[in-house]
Design a protein around this nucleic acid. Structure first.
Lengths: 231, 231
DNA sequence: CCAAAAGTGTTGGTTTTACACCCATGG
DNA sequence: CCATGGGTGTAAAACCAACACTTTTGG
C-alpha cells in the first residue's frame, strides 16, 4: 500500500462493517441465519448478521463477535469470503463490507442480538428479499461453500461433534444438491484418514440397525495438494 | 450488514486502500512489480503498488487505476485477493487494504507513478524486504496464483497475445515450480479446446525448428466444473 | 418375522502417467 | 552436418463409477 503523504483530498474514509453468512444444517436442509432489521434503511427486511468494526479490532475479531452475538458460539469455522465496496451499496454513505462465511453445527440455536428484532434460520434455497446487496453476498457464499465441500473436508463443521456416516453423507448431498453413492462415499472418506471411529453408536433415534458414530480428527492434515473428494 | 442506527461510538472510519500484486513473466522468471516508497513510513522500502480509494470509486476501479498508473495497461486479468485489516498494520492509523492480483503480459513495461521514485520488476523468489505487511500479501498472492493455474487456464494472461506451446509450458513450470511432461502438457491443453492454432511460427528467435504460435480462444468456456489441468 | 437402516467388494471403463525418437531449421 | 528445440504415440498403472446383497436392530 503506497500511502504516500500528503493524503489525497479525495481519499475515502468509509465505515467498515463485517457481515457473516452463517450456515447450518437443520432438518436435512441447508439453512442460514438472517436477522430482521429494526431500523432504516431496509427496516423490517431480512439481512445477514453483521455490524461495524470497532476501533482497534481486527476484521476476524469483529466477525467472531458478531457471530457470537447471534449464536453464542465462538470456536467454529470462519473464513473471509470477499469484500463488497460499491460506492452506493448503502444509501447512508460509503460502507465497506468484509463478508465472512461461518459454519456452525446443527445443535446451535439462534438468539436475537441487540440490533435485531428477530434472528431466524432460513432455507438457503428459499430466501426472502434481503437488505442491501446481501442477496449477492449469499449467492457468493453458497458457491464458495459448495466448492469448499468438493475439495476439502470442511463438511464436519456443519455437524455435531459426533456423527454417523449416513448423516455426513446427507450433509454433503444437501449442500451439493446431488445424490452420492453410499459405498463410494464411505470408502473415500475413510481412506482420506480424516475420520476417527468412536466406540459409540447412534441408537434408538430411528428404525433399523444403529449406526456407528465417528468424529473428525482435528489433527488431520487438512490437505496438502488438493484432490477432489468427489469428482 | 446490520448498520443499525445510532452509529456505535466505537465504529471505525478507516482509510481505505487497494494494493495490487502485479505478476508477469520475464526472462523465464515469475516477477512482480514493486515500487520504492518516497515518503515515510517505510521510506525507501519496496512495496507493492497501491493507493487510497477515491470518493465514489469502486474497489475494482481503484485497483485498475493503480494498475494503469504503474504499467499503462488497462484490460488485463484482475481479481480480488483478500482484505487485510489488522489494526496496527499501518503505523499512521487504521488502514484497510483490499488486495488484488493482476496478471500482465510479458511485454508490458513498468513506469514510475507520481508517488513512487522507482518501479521495478523483482523475481517472486528473491524479494527484498517489503513495507507494511506486504510480504504476507505477496505470499498469499503467490499461493493463489499457483492454485489458479492448476485449476484454470489463466496462464495465458501472463504471456503475449500469441505464444508457442513451449513458452506456455515454461510459464506453467515457472509458476508451479515443477517440471511438466511435454507430451502430456500439449495433449491436455489441446484437448481442453482453449487454444487456437495460428498460421504463424516463432522464427529466428532461437536455434532449432520454429515453433507454431497459438493464441488463447477468448470465447472458450472458462470452466464448468473445475477439473485440475495438471494433477 | 418384518421393516428399516447400516454395512460391505468387485469389475469394467476411463484417466493419468511414464517414456524415446524423428523433424525442421540455423549456424 | 551438427546442435537446438519442436513435435508426436503407446502401454501400464491408478482411479473412478456402477452396482446388490447381508447384517443388525426395533416394533
Amino acid at each position: 500500500m503506497d500511502t504516500s503523504h500528503p493524503l489525497p483530498p479525495d481519499a475515502e474514509r468509509p465505515l467498515l462493517a463485517v457481515d457473516v453468512v452463517i450456515f447450518s444444517l437443520r432438518q436435512r436442509d441447508l439453512q442460514l441465519l438472517l436477522v430482521r432489521r429494526r431500523y432504516p434503511p431496509f427496516k423490517g427486511r431480512w439481512a445477514i448478521p453483521g455490524g461495524f468494526v470497532h476501533v482497534a479490532e481486527s476484521l476476524e475479531q469483529a466477525a467472531r463477535r458478531e457471530l457470537e452475538e447471534e449464536t453464542g458460539v465462538h470456536a467454529v469455522y470462519l473464513e473471509q469470503l470477499y469484500t463488497f465496496g460499491e460506492p452506493r451499496r448503502d444509501p447512508r454513505g460509503r460502507v465497506i463490507s468484509v463478508a465472512y462465511v461461518a459454519l456452525v453445527p446443527a445443535d446451535v440455536t439462534a438468539r436475537a442480538g441487540d440490533d435485531a428484532a428477530q434472528a431466524d434460520w432460513h432455507s438457503a434455497h428459499a430466501l426472502p428479499a434481503l437488505a442491501f446487496d446481501h442477496a449477492e453476498i449469499v449467492q457468493y457464499a453458497l458457491q464458495r461453500l459448495r466448492y469448499k465441500l468438493e475439495y476439502t473436508a470442511v463438511g464436519f463443521e456443519l455437524l455435531p461433534h459426533e456423527f454417523t456416516l449416513s448423516e455426513l453423507q446427507a450433509a454433503y448431498e444437501t449442500v451439493l444438491g446431488e445424490r452420492l453413492d453410499k459405498r463410494n462415499f464411505r470408502r473415500r472418506l475413510l481412506e482420506a484418514g480424516i475420520l476417527e471411529e468412536t466406540e459409540r453408536y447412534r441408537e434408538g433415534e430411528s428404525q433399523g440397525r444403529p449406526a456407528r458414530l465417528y468424529r473428525y480428527r482435528r489433527d488431520a492434515v487438512t490437505e496438502v495438494k488438493a484432490r477432489r473428494l468427489f469428482p
